[in-house]
Every structure is written in C-alpha cells, then in structure tokens.
Design a protein around this nucleic acid. Structure first.
Lengths: 223, 223
DNA sequence: TTTATAATTTAAGCAGACTTAAATAAAAAA
DNA sequence: TTTTTTATTTAAGTCTGCTTAAATTATAAA
C-alpha cells in the first residue's frame, strides 16, 4: 500500500546519479540517512519491481521504468515547491521539507492541476528544472559554482542546492536569491573564501557556501 | 515516525462518536475497513498515548488530548477540501479522497497559511464545519435529512455526507449541491422514495439517497 | 434464567522497512 | 603482490500495523 520509501529511494537515485547514470549504494544510504544494510534490502526489492538494474557489489542504475517513476516524483516535488512559494508565500527555506512530505500524498491529477494553476513553471524556487507531464526536463542554462568564479567576474544566480534549510536561511540573510547578480570582489587563495558584492552590499563567504550557489556568468572584467 | 494510522483512528473516533462522545470498536473497524482485532490492537496503543479512555469490552471515548488531536486532523482535512475545490477547481466528488491523503502530510504552518489564503472558511464543500486553530468548531444551522421532509416541504441543502465518491457524483448529475433549494413534490409510503424538484427539474430519488442529504427548512406549505 | 448471537479480545503469524553485528568482496595503499 | 581499508552484503532481530482463527465476554432472545 505505502510506497513512500520506494519513492524516496528512486528520487535519490535519480537526483544523485552521476553523468553515466550510476550511483553507489553508500551514497543512497547517506542521502536517506539509513544504514547500508537497509539500502541493500531495498535495492533488491526495487530490482524485482524492475525499477533498477542491480548486481551485487556493482553500481546501481535506473531502468527506463524506474527513471520514469523517479522523474515523476521530482516533478511532484518541484511543482509543490513552486506552489508553496508562489501561492502560499512560504519562505524559501521551508519549502523543500514541506514539499517532500506532500510529494508522496498527491494524485497525478492534482499535480497536473497545480501545474496549470501555476502556468506551467519551468523551474522551482531553487532553480531546478521541473519535468513535464511527459517526462521532459527543461534545459537549464550553463552554470558554474560560485566558487569557480575568479576575481572580478560576476553573474546571475540560477540555481542553489536545496537540501539544507540552514544554508537557505543563511542565503536569505545575505540577500542571495534566484536571479540576483553577484560580483566577486576578492578571492583569497589560502582558504578560497570570497568577498562578494550583492545588492550593493559586501559579504565574506566560505568556499563551502560558494560551492552550493550556481552562477550564469554575464561578463568577465578585462576579458 | 509515521502516524498515519493513529491519525486515521482518532479522526474516525471523533467523527463517528455518538452524542455522549462514545463509540464502539466495531464501528471503527467498519469505517477504517480493518478487522476488529486490528482495532483492539490500536486502541491499546492510543490508550497508552493518552489519546483515548479504554477499558476492555467498554465503549471508547477520547481524552481531551485525543480530542484536540482529532479536531486538528478534521481541520486539516476540511481546509484541504476547500482549497482543492476553490483554488484548484477539483470536482466535488474527488475532493474528499485527495484531502484524506494530504491531511497526513502537511505541517500546521501550511494549514494555517492555507486558511488565511482561503479567508478563514467556516465550512468545507460538503457543508461540514472547519475547526479553528484553537479548536473551536463553527455552529452549524439546524438541519434534517432530506428523507425527513414531508410532501410540500422545501429547504436549502446545507450539508451532504462525504464518504462516498459515487454518491457525490450522482448528486452532481442531479444538480444537487450546497445551498441549492429542494422541494419535495411527492413522497411514496411503500418505499419512502421521493419526487423532488431542484432548479426546475424533477427527479425521483431513493430513501437511501435522501438520508445523506441535509436540509435547512425554509417554509412549510400550509403550516 | 438459560441459550444463542454478536462483539471483543487474545494468540500466533506475516510483511515492510528498518537496526546491529558479522562476513565477504572490492579498492587502495604498501 | 600482499595487506589494509572501505564498501557491500548477509544474518538475525525489532517494531508497526495489519491478518486469521480461536477464545472470551456481553447482549438479546427465548
């Protein structure tokens, strides 16, 4: 009856697979905060359901039907996120967690109706693309982690990682949100921390933080 | 972690308790479509959690904390129903089932925000009152089942039972919805079926159907 | 009051999704 | 290549919410 766990496993596999479509069991365990034994257990079941290809000690990959399933879960999640931000006015940093609960408890019909209500949004509040009903995923613009920018470069925030509420909260404090323009004033080599400018204010941020903010570069000073 | 079952049990106990606040285990089993053994099992757990008063072979009743919990579940359910109908435009007969899933997966914060968005609705699409954040339940107008009306009597639909999708679907076909006016043209004694008039059309309906529609009487012919 | 019927509980067991601890395989380091 | 470390799997067991079947208690009928 209850598919919540399977849904979560498939979402995580989809979201964190590498460019070759593969993922290690350990990564799944870390993302879901369960033991590796639990993962092994579930992987066997998912393989029986024909959602994944599974061979002992090998990397996991989704079957076409597993991918379809996972993409639909991602779609649900992101449509709920847009809804929660745009219609309900829920703050940025709360949206992910709430959507995570709702994604397991809504019919496809409801999701499709929300999509219409929201006028077919292409990206969620963190800049992640929303798959269409048919499973097509909007192309996202090329972007770099903010940590890759050099001194003097600037660009637009097009995506941020969404898995940490505290992180998003901190971004809000700094005034960093989607489509804001950030300029790298200084970059310190010894710890890779950055001095950035946003909305006329300057902030010092760690490399760690900068790695989770993604930028579309607009212009390069002196290039 | 997962409270879905407990939430369902408490909701059912609240919704189907009699005027004295009591309910039999068997009724719970029927409403939830589980065996009575499962109910006994859960009742013990609910008693340990101090949500109900439970003595073997006796009627069940909610404790104050159980009632508070249950009222909050009812609130969630009904706010979702209003939302699904008013904002999403989901048809009457689909709303109950969808809300039933969502009620278990939303934070109080989200429910409160939806309530504001909907401008503090007092009744759900089936005419059931929506408890406030503080647990206060709006007074509902006095009403009778349509089956109690006599020939020539008419009144306004103020509530319908919401637990059967087919039933609601049928009401839609007949043009029966909240706040419509129904006139009883004829009542046949042998099967208690009724000939009713609504929106200028006449329909013959069974007693069973009429028992699930609730009417606030407007005027009595010849009284 | 006794008997029959219905409601409730107990007992045993199952399935799902976990856990810990031990065993095994693969990858990395020496 | 051998050793060490890390990843993965297996085994055994837990907890929750159910099930069926049997036993018990309460209620209604005779």
């Amino acid at each position: 009856m209850n598919n919540i766990s399977k849904e979560d496993y498939l979402s995580v596999i989809f979201k964190f697979q590498n460019r070759n479509g593969e993922i290690r069991p350990k990564a799944i365990a870390q993302k879901l905060q369960v033991t590796q034994a639990a993962v092994t257990d579930m992987l066997k079941k998912l393989a029986i359901d024909n959602y994944i290809l599974y061979e002992k000690y090998k990397c996991i990959r989704l079957t076409p039907s597993g991918e379809e399933f996972a993409i639909n879960m991602v779609r649900r999640h992101r449509i709920w996120e847009v809804f929660l931000q745009k219609v309900v006015g829920m703050p940025w940093d709360k949206v992910h967690e709430e959507a995570h609960k709702l994604e397991h408890s809504s019919s496809d019909d409801l999701i499709n109706r929300l999509e219409v209500l929201l006028r077919y949004p292409e990206f969620d509040p963190h800049g992640d693309p929303i798959p269409s009903k048919e499973g097509k995923i909007p192309k996202i613009k090329k972007y770099l982690p903010l940590s890759d920018l050099k001194e003097g470069e600037s660009g637009t925030v097009v995506r941020v990682n969404d898995f940490d509420e505290q992180f998003l909260n901190y971004l809000t404090e700094l005034g960093i949100s989607l489509y804001e323009i950030i300029l790298v004033k200084e970059k310190r080599n010894f710890d890779n921390s950055l001095m950035i400018q946003i909305k006329g204010k300057q902030w010092n941020i760690s490399q760690k933080l900068a790695e989770n903010i993604f930028i579309e570069i607009k212009k390069v000073k002196g290039a």
